[in-house]
Amino acid sequence: MSDTVHQVQQALATQQYIATDVIATVLFLAEKLGKPLLAEGPAGVGKTELSKAWAAATNRELVRLQCYEGLDESKALYEWEYAKQMLYTQLLRDKLSDLLASTHSLTEAADQLAQEEDVFFSERFLLPRPLLRAISSDTPTVLLIDEIDRADAEFEAFLLEVLSDFQVSIPEIGTITAKQRPVVFLTSNNTRELSEALKRRCLYIYIDYPDTEEELRIVQLKVPDLAPKLAQQAVQTVQALRQLNLKKNPSISETLDWARALVTLNAQAIDSQVLENTLTVLLKYEADVERARRAMQRQQGDNGYGRTYR
């Protein structure tokens, strides 16, 4: 790996994020090309964490937009503070009457009022939402658009405009162009296919579950209290669980939770007793727990029904 990519890796390491060569390289490219980075992969492999770490490593503010079904422009971009506008007109009613008192005809009054109209459609009454905040910020930001696959296709189309030019037009005010181009991260759990137009504008990275070695490094970094031998065992168990074709595979964050649980319980080894007690930290479906339990018992020479055939 070249030095520059190495620097990215080291910067992330200072934030306790272990980046593979793949992640570091693609992140470097995203930064250089000024393109959004689309990270896909199963839940809980550190996609969101990556953007947080990068924001902290580069000393930028993190602006987060969490997507959900029904998210629309007014929640993502900006909104007029209708209530505030209303309140101001009510409070300023006297002032307005004074202003209009000198006029003689209705047209004149309307003209007079039109001159002041801008007051009510100025940035004072603009409620910036994440996208506008990231764009209009004076300092460089990291914009995280989380779980874009949950938003509607309609919203995706709207995002395209923002992501390609980094500018938004507000009819009453005009076009706001980014002073500092934010670094954009998009994450997706792959629950639906994103539009090709959106993908075309992004660099793509698929983050999968880490292999044993990487995961062990992560566990040791984040839960240093866990004895090395136990950590090794724990990671191997989790890796084995992921092979089981479960409804929901244990994610890295769940591995870490489990590791912490092991520390708290002061476990000496991962035996069936400990597993029995803590398996629910890793697995969130009853069917999964059942399946895992049976697989573990099979490994220990038991067929899971209380008898052995040997």
């Binding site: 070249s2 990519v5 060569d21 390289t25 693609v26 470097f28 490219l29 075309r200 793509y204 990275i205």
Partner: peptide, 21 residues
């Protein structure tokens, strides 16, 4: 930006820009 000397970096620069699926 990354050149073609480093084969792995070269592969990744192609992959992240060309493959979106």
């Amino acid at each position: 930006h990354l050149g073609i000397q480093d084969r792995e970096a070269f592969r990744l620069s192609l992959r992240s820009t060309l493959v979106k699926d």
